[in-house]
Amino acid sequence: MAHSTRQTVLVTGVTGHVGFSVLLNALNAGYNVRATVRSESKKKVILSHPHIQYADSGSRLSLIVIPNIAKSHAFDEVAQGVDYIIHIASPIATAGSVNPADYESHFIRTAVHGTLNVLGAAAKSTTVRRIVLTSSIVALIPLAQLEGRERQSKPVSPSDRVPFPTAPYKDEFEAYAASKIAALSVAEKWVKTRKPRFDVVYLYPGFVEGRNHLVSNKRDMLKGTNTIVTGIALGNHFGSFIGATVHNEDVATAHIRALDAGVPGNTSYILSQPSRWNDIKHIAKKHFPGAVASRTLPLTGSASTLEIEVDTSSTEQVFNFAFKSFEDQVVDVLGHYLEVQHRSKRCNDFPSMPKAVQQTLQAV
């Protein structure tokens, strides 16, 4: 259903896997959208993207550069006059690119202050009705269970909370998990203490899998949570991951439906379903037999699945949709990888072409 043009939603983090899909869904639902990005170059990437142009967003989309979401009052001006805020922007684990000495400032401080800045800006606005905060399932599960050192005694529930693990952190993932725990804790405390006129919906996705519309080269296909799917198909060997995944489109859909007044506020919802990582090989053989036969997808990688039970009954009931299967997730990721690989091969067939021409062909 299209929404009144007087309804405006502020979306942070739109240059990410989840954020860009949420942006597209918000535009397609008829909202005016203010979106924040970290730089002018990222702003150009969004505005020039074919999906944004096809969305016929016109004057309904404006992009605002906020280089540092943790800077005091970062969102005060941009939140004025909006009806809703979807806060997605937060540091993600990037496989060793962050110096361990910077874990606390990069992950914890940014996540916490970014969240408090959004809440504070909404409080100063007279129009905000609801905030949707994107957390993660890792904020609900003790690290010992995430790493397989401890078995769960009951299904993961939206009401579960994990004590904040203090520094030092042994790796980026632990620091990332701590940032999600910390941001959730301060948000809930802020809401309980301040009792604002708006409410908050908290969403906890599992590992987000599915087509990343912002990725157009093979290098970037091996970044983010899609890395596990493409990595196993291409021969990478990982350790253990919990078997809790969700399709990117389901996550985007839930964010937009969470704006509906019929969805109870000040409530938490898990976005996840069971999955087994090595099933990727069977799914690839079923849907991409030619790529497997040619060893474009050699299927020689592996990852162990940590079995985990998650209670998503309230999510499916309230949001009125059934989660896409792990098979759907894998097909979308690998299908996208093969498209990108094919475009790359087409350009490599003409090495004498000017670089600008090759880039144009890659964009086709």
Rank of each mutant, 00 (worst) to 15 (best):
K124Q: 14
Q341E: 15
T94I: 04
V340Q: 09
A70V: 04
K324R: 14
P163C: 05
T230E: 12
R346A: 13
K192D: 12
N348I: 12
S179V: 02
W190G: 02
T12Y: 07
F164I: 13
I141M: 06
V191N: 03
V14L: 01
L47R: 06
L140W: 03
N217V: 03
T267G: 12
A70E: 06
A2Y: 14
Q7A: 10
N212D: 15
I242E: 11
E309F: 01
A291V: 00
S90T: 12
N248C: 12
G120K: 09
A233L: 08
T267R: 05
E339P: 08
R6C: 13
N28P: 01
S313Y: 00
T296Q: 09
I108G: 01
D260F: 12
V200H: 04
S39A: 10
V18Y: 00
V65P: 07
L259R: 00
R343G: 13
P351Y: 11
I66T: 09
S59P: 07
T8G: 06
A252Q: 09
T8M: 10
T245S: 14
V340A: 01
Y54R: 14
L361P: 03
S48R: 13
L47D: 02
I137W: 02
T110Q: 06
T127P: 04
S59F: 10
I270F: 00
T15C: 09
A177I: 11
I283M: 03
K71D: 14
V45D: 02
S185R: 13
S272N: 02
K42H: 13
E249P: 01
L334C: 04
I141C: 12
R346I: 15
I108K: 01
V18W: 00
E307A: 13
I308P: 06
C347R: 10
S159D: 15
K195A: 08
K345I: 14
S136L: 02
A178S: 10
